[in-house]
Amino acid sequence: MKVLLVDDEADIRRIAELSLRNLGGHEVVAASSGAEALASVEGISPDVVLMDVTMPDLDGLAVLAEVRRRGLAVPVVFMTARVQPSDRERYLSAGAVGVIEKPFDPMTLHAALRRIVGG
């Protein structure tokens, strides 16, 4: 799968990228902000967007809304700290297909993502 990984933390991007690429065999394109993701999402045409919710400029929900506004059907999975079931419902009803809680286990991240996307 081609994964667009969006997170403002370089360390997290590195770890997630390594996990997804080395353990899951996914192709990973990383973006460090919501704006960057929106700028590149159409060019990349990823199979899935794995995105942090809390980011300094545009947050994950705003990016998701814009992606949908552009008519893109790409599945979006959020990564976020401290997920309450009510938050999960909120994200899902906003159009995300799944939520991965931070801190995540890098050894199983790729599998979790695949399970959510169903690929």
Binding site: E9, D11, I12, I15, K102, F104, P106
Partner: peptide, 21 residues
Amino acid sequence: HELRTPLTSVRGALGLIDGGV
């Protein structure tokens, strides 16, 4: 957010070492 972000990195890095990656 501020506490969890570094924790995620630490947890991730340790996980990768631990997993032999």
